[in-house]
Design a protein around this nucleic acid. Structure first.
Lengths: 224, 224
DNA sequence: ATCTACATGTGAAATGCTTCACAATAGGTG
DNA sequence: CACCTATTGTGAAGCATTTCACATGTAGAT
């Protein structure tokens, strides 16, 4: 049979597909631990509450990784998915804002597991600057631009209050960073070539609230 | 002109619309602080990087809140959106797992602001049980079921390791809780009438990673 | 060698979501 | 009052995503 290497696809891949790739990755990691050699789209779908057709279609955007009658080879597919997601490498990440959220993220295991290494911390609070968090010394945010550059940072996580987030992002953008994960509940303005993803933890609680007061049935209810 | 009270709509509201309601709410809160009396769909859209048509369509699912030629009354629309989302009230929330993430969430301001009151904490670690976090004493997870019930908890936030999350959720479900926000990177199995929303912070970094290695243009790039 | 069971990969259909475009209408101006 | 500008609310069109359904292919059993 022919090798089909995963490749950058011609068509634009949807946001949902990319998010599902993350789900496949985590399911495959587990399957690998459980010593599965192959897995069907059906099983993969069941584990992440998706449909088999969706799993197959998602994967098919990137190549043809399975064997008819058998399914997908777990270890190999995991490697391919991690390659597609770009997490088959280490990313150098800086974290700005060592408050509640920031402190939690420094020790967040899932980041490390997936190659996101927080190697730099920034804050503006004199009591925090110079202190040590998990082996990293907190830098003064005044030196943001120069230090981001000197340390070859590729991604930045913003965990500062909404009121100052935009000013900080402006500096981050000037430091030529192209990927920002934002925890501040505000819409950041950046140039068109900078990627921003927002993490808004209250939003999902609001969704639950909405669902409760509107008897919104959970997705997939009544399918089993 | 006629009053159009917001009402539970006939059609199923999409997940994206609900999430955008959260964005409208936060934009309106800001506009209110800035003493705007009215706001157009155009301005609202600009502030949250959406399109005016989308704003109008989203709102129209719930009623007719604006005035042609003028826009929407800020304070009133905010009140209506918060009512639609069910955040015009207090929700009694329990938080399970007082690790990195859990500790951060106890002090997370956005929750309180929107009516999500964490009134109960649980952990299984003897060193943590009995300790005081922001005025709340950590309970033993052994008493989960009874205490959730006795304290009229309506929502639960799960911030425990993935390996034990399912066991805990089983108890939560038995305690008749219908809304769960899950921070563990695992797909929780629950009965069809229980709402689960997942918060996976690594997922958004993976998206950024994908975007970077695939020169995936940011959404909306080239529109300005 | 043939048959059966299983499962992928994929066009095409179905469904869902977003954007368009315009009638309706409010408010201001002369 | 007539007119002009601004902006909503909404069917309908356009576009995107999901699901269907089946041809294709593999492995194992007899």
């Amino acid at each position: 049979m022919e090798e089909t290497p995963e490749s950058t696809p011609r068509k634009r891949i949807s946001e949902s597909t990319i998010h599902r790739l993350s789900l496949y990755f985590r399911a495959l990691s587990l399957l690998e631990k459980e010593n599965y050699e192959t897995v069907s789209s059906k099983e993969l779908a069941k584990r992440e509450k998706l449909t088999p057709a969706q799993v197959r279609k998602d994967l098919s955007f990137f190549g043809s990784f399975g064997t008819r009658g058998l399914g997908y080879p777990v270890t190999e597919l995991k490697a391919r998915v991690s390659r597609i997601l770009g997490i088959d490498r280490v990313w150098r990440v800086a974290l700005i804002g060592i408050g509640n959220i920031g402190s939690a993220l420094v020790s967040y295991k899932e980041f490390i597991k997936q190659g996101f290494h927080i190697v730099k911390l920034f804050d503006n609070d004199q009591r925090k600057i110079g202190s040590n968090h998990k082996g990293i010394i907190v830098s003064d945010i005044k030196n943001l631009k120069t230090e981001l550059h000197e340390d070859n940072i590729e991604m930045v996580v913003i965990a500062v209050p909404a009121t100052v987030a935009q000013y900080i992002v402006d500096d981050v953008v000037e430091a030529n960073i192209k990927a920002i994960l934002n925890f501040a509940p505000i819409n950041l303005k950046v140039p068109p070539d900078v990627h921003v993803r927002n993490e808004n933890m209250a939003m999902e609680l609001e969704y639950l609230s909405f669902a409760m007061v509107n008897n919104h049935m959970p997705k997939g209810a009544g399918k089993n």
